[in-house]
């Protein structure tokens, strides 16, 4: 079992607000992580200071699981599409972002990592994932100018 979630820092308990700004995303992430079993291996990149690993670990903990290096019951991949989807996006609007994310939506294989960096996408760990067409997609949106997917592969 394998799942994909984004490295959204707002998912961390230490950054909780009174009103959750990512409530639907959080619900989808917890749903996905809940299907990975009790021992979860996290695959994340070094992007943004390695924050993806922290987010992954927090989600596993919230689901009552344990992070392991091996002997896992499921794999949690942390990554996301571009962060340049709108003028208010973290990386401001880049006109290439929508097409980049659309290409990822079709296939993660062969992602252009150079372009990914220009578009502030955390895509290094996405390359080895099967296509979204083969997954149960629990979330696909870019509410704050960053493209998020939550998906589960059986």
């Amino acid at each position: 079992m394998k799942a994909l979630v984004p490295g959204t820092l707002a998912l961390l308990p230490s950054y909780a607000s009174i009103e959750d700004p990512v409530a639907p995303l959080r619900a989808a992430c917890l749903d996905a992580v809940g299907r990975l079993g009790p021992r979860v291996r996290i695959v994340s990149s070094a992007a943004t200071g390695g924050s993806g690993a922290r987010v992954g670990a927090a989600l596993v903990a919230a689901g009552g699981g344990t992070v392991v290096e091996s002997g896992e019951t499921g794999v949690l991949v942390v990554g996301n599409g571009s962060a340049t989807r709108t003028e208010k996006a973290p990386g401001h609007l880049d006109e290439r972002a929508a097409a980049f994310d659309e290409a990822l939506r079709a296939s993660f294989a062969g992602v252009d990592l150079e372009l990914a960096e220009e578009l502030w996408a955390d895509a290094a760990c996405l390359r080895d994932l099967p296509p979204l067409a083969d997954a149960e997609v629990l979330y696909d949106d870019a509410p704050y100018g960053v493209q998020y997917w939550v998906a589960v592969w059986a």
Binding site: L9, Y15, S17, I18, P21, A83, P90, Y144
Partner: peptide
């Protein structure tokens, strides 16, 4: 003693 009402800036 109180979380922000709704913080997302820099946390997306």
């Amino acid at each position: 003693r109180r979380p922000p009402l709704r913080a997302i800036r820099g946390l997306q």
